[in-house]
Each structure stands twice: as structure tokens, then as C-alpha cells.
Write a protein that binds this DNA or RNA. Structure first.
Lengths: 197, 197
DNA sequence: GTCTATATTTGGATAGAC
DNA sequence: GTCTATCCAAATATAGAC
């Protein structure tokens, strides 16, 4: 049985174990019993730190959001040219889904698993993609500002919306097809959103 | 409690009830007990017709695939012009997700719910989108054939792949955002895949 | 093919001691 | 904060009669 660093606090061990299991196996397929065993904690310790399974799932999503935003931003900021920065988001997808072994997006998967539309878990997913949309909008605006003559006619908001949808399609179809081609085709589609340089 | 037509056979009542619940509530969130109650059958009758819950889910997906393929084909075949037929698939998405109350795609949702990559349920989802890709490829080829001079340079396979990914993005993001805008933006993105007429 | 009744495991969550 | 022991409901599935 795979276990987590015993040097961490019980709370951290629970969160790390659950994050791994929730992502790989899904939220509903992962029982609290399994998390408790693999984290090496007592049952009561689990519910001491997280009053419900849903509270733990919320912590998982918050953690996931922070880490993914950080990694993506780092990838974008390795580039200087506005057109490179603009394309960075969709170019990030292929290596990212590969490293995730084609298990897709933890937020999209959570939405599918949680039917209740008012669930805080769904709210987190919505927020995650709203933040991504904000980043893309900003990169699009930077691109337009870098060459106003060429890009003057572009609708920044519409392009950002389309871009997010393309990202989601690349991720979700990669999981269903168990192949990375949607991520690569996504790069071409995003490229077509702006005039040929 | 919502029940199904009692005039149907027990097997049909089970399948119809389960299809509704699996789609709206998700596969794992729906217990066999609930299906049994709402279908108005005995426990043993359930397992007589469907040896496992998974077998029922498989029947659900097969049914869903047939119905969705039929409806989409009808929508496409109401059009004659190759460019209209080509665009019909993405234009179908907005009314379709609305009628589904933004619960997304039963196949994508199933993939998220089932972690096992060898599951027959995942295979069905993969096949569903392979068939959709085939239809789109065919419509793209028709379009190219209708005006070879204009479309000669197009890569039919690449366009079809991109098109499917855009469809998936429109559906999945509509569910997460609980809004139809991704479907409308999808139309614009697909439009940009081919030269302006 | 359909029924009632039951088996068995796992689900999330708690009581009370240390 | 962490532990052992336990509760109860819900999960999937089966036995055996009609």
C-alpha cells in the first residue's frame, strides 16, 4: 500500500493522500476509509481535521487550483514575446496532460461527479476556469497592445472566451480518447484565432 | 416519486428510469435501490435483466448513443448546402445542451466517473466520439468536394479532429460555467477552420 | 419473469478515552 | 490532536418461492 510521508502532520498526510486519490480515482470512487488507511491516520483524526468528506474535497480543489495556476504562470513567464506568451497556455496542455497520465482536469471531472449545481465543489470549478479565462484575456490584451495596427480589429473578450473553450476541449477529449492529439490540434485552433504573423 | 410508464416491460422501465437518473445525477451517485424503487420493479427483477449495475450502464450508453446519433443526423439532413451541413454539428450544440439543462454529455461525464481506463463504459465513450468524428470528417469531405478550387488546400482529417475538440470544449465548458456561451463561441471557432465564403 | 426476504460489504460519521 | 471501537444507512447482489 502506497503511503505518504510520515514526517508530515496528520492533516497534511490526509490532504496529500486524498488529493492523489481524488484526482486519479475520482471523488465518489474514493472512500474515506481508503484515505484513512493510506494516510496512516485514525478515523477520528480524519473527521477532526475535515468535518465531512466534502470539506476535504474542497481543500483538495483549492490546493489543486493554487498549484496549477502557479505552474502555468511560470510556464507563461518563461516567455517574453507577446505572441509566445499568448500561445503558451494551449502549448502547456500537452506536457501537462501527459504528466497527468491522461486523467484530464480535476475540476471538470469533479463537475461530472457532482450533480448538485449549487455545490461548493462546482463553484470552485467554475472559479478555476474563470481565473484561467482572466489570464487568457490579459495575455490577449497584451498581444493587441504590442501591435495595435495589426490587432486593432480583434475582440479581446470573444477571443479569450473561445480560447478557454478550446483549452477545455483539448483536455476533456484527450482523456476520453486517451491520446494527446487533441492538445496538439488545440494549438493550431488557437493560432487561427489571431491574424497570421 | 417520479415513475416511468407502467405499460412498459420491467426491463424497459428499468432502462428508462436508469437512463434518466444516470444522466441527471451521474452513474455513481445513483444507487440500484433508487432505480428499483422508481422503476417500480422488484430487486430480483432488476438483477434478472441486468446482471450487474455496470451492465445496465452499458445499455444506457448504447441507447444514448443511438438516440443522439439519430437526432444529430436528422438535424444535419435538414440542410442541403455543404457549408450549412458542415456547420450543423456545432450549431446543434446550443439547443441540445439547453434541452439537457446544462448537464453536459453523458459520455464525458461517464469517463470522469470511471477511473478504470479499460472499462467497457470508457470504451463506449471513446467510440461515441469516434463516430462523431467520422460524421464530421464526412461532412468536411463533402464541403471540399463541393468547391475543390476553394478548398483544395484543406487537410480534411486535421479539420475534423479540430472540429471534434471544439465540440467537446463547448459541451464541457457549458456544463462547468452553467452557461451556453461556449456553444455559441464554438460556432465562430468552427467557422474559422475554413476559408471565409 | 417477477416476487419477498435477506446477505454482505462499504459508505460516511461519532463516542469517549488518552 | 490522536487513538480504538462502534454506529447506522446505503451500497451491490443473491436465495428461493410463485
Amino acid at each position: 500500500m502506497k503511503k505518504v510521508q510520515t514526517s508530515d502532520s496528520a492533516k497534511m498526510r490526509i490532504l496529500k493522500t486524498a488529493s492523489d486519490l481524488f484526482y486519479r480515482q475520482g471523488y465518489r470512487s474514493t472512500g474515506t476509509n481508503e484515505i484513512i488507511k493510506k494516510a496512516g491516520v485514525a478515523k477520528a483524526s480524519f473527521f477532526y481535521h475535515f468535518p465531512t468528506k466534502e470539506a476535504l474535497a474542497l481543500a483538495y480543489l483549492q490546493d489543486l487550483h493554487s498549484h496549477e495556476a502557479e505552474n502555468l504562470l511560470k510556464f507563461v513567464n518563461e516567455r517574453q514575446k507577446p505572441s509566445d506568451r499568448f500561445l503558451a497556455v494551449i502549448k502547456w496542455i500537452e506536457p501537462w496532460i501527459k504528466s497527468n497520465k491522461l486523467r484530464g482536469c480535476g475540476f471538470l471531472n469533479m463537475v461530472s461527479e457532482v450533480p448538485d449545481k449549487k455545490s461548493p465543489l462546482r463553484k470552485m470549478a467554475k472559479k478555476h476556469y474563470a481565473v484561467l479565462g482572466g489570464l487568457i484575456r490579459q495575455l490577449t490584451q497584451e498581444l493587441v497592445n504590442s501591435d495595435p495596427k495589426r490587432y486593432r480589429h480583434l475582440d479581446v473578450s470573444a477571443i479569450a472566451d473561445r480560447y478557454v473553450a478550446i483549452v477545455v476541449g483539448a483536455i476533456a477529449l484527450s482523456e476520453t480518447a486517451q491520446n494527446t492529439w487533441p492538445a496538439r490540434q488545440g494549438v493550431e485552433v488557437v493560432n487561427a484565432l489571431i491574424p497570421i504573423p
